[in-house]
């Protein structure tokens, strides 16, 4: 792997978890990308912040609860999780409501981080 090029990949998650398939698809692609030793970061914006809400119980809607998998990301060496403060504020969420450790950033900080990426993948 020493000769391979490491690029900066950012996954931008902007959808709530169960209404559409975007959140789950993103998570699966992240897990696969993690195998390629790239610089991976995840950003949660807009309704995407709901993906990280604690205590999701999906039994009654008969959809797999994939929220525990976000806690596996650390083991996959995916450690850069960013959440936009403005999106959390607008939805009545705080860092304590989230099921993983994240870095909370302002809109401007997220925007600047986005500009630095080689590849931005939108979900």
């Amino acid at each position: 792997m020493s000769e391979s090029v490491v690029k900066k990949f950012m996954f931008v998650n902007r959808k709530a978890p169960y209404g559409t398939i975007y959140a789950l698809e993103s998570l699966e692609v992240v897990l696969i990308t993690a195998a390629f030793d790239q610089d991976v970061s995840l950003v949660f914006l807009d309704d995407g912040v709901f993906q990280l809400k604690k205590s999701q119980q999906t039994k009654a809607i008969e959809i797999k609860n994939f929220s525990p998998t976000y806690r596996a990301l650390d083991g996959y060496d995916v450690e850069k999780l960013y959440v936009e403060k403005e999106s959390m504020d607008a939805r009545g969420l705080t860092e304590d409501d989230l099921l993983v450790d994240v870095t909370v950033l302002s809109s401007a900080e997220i925007g600047a981080l986005m500009n630095e990426q080689d590849v931005v993948l939108s979900f």
Partner: peptide, 8 residues
């Protein structure tokens, strides 16, 4: 552009 984001 260096990169591109589609705001779905």
């Amino acid at each position: 552009n260096k990169n591109c984001q589609s705001w779905l």
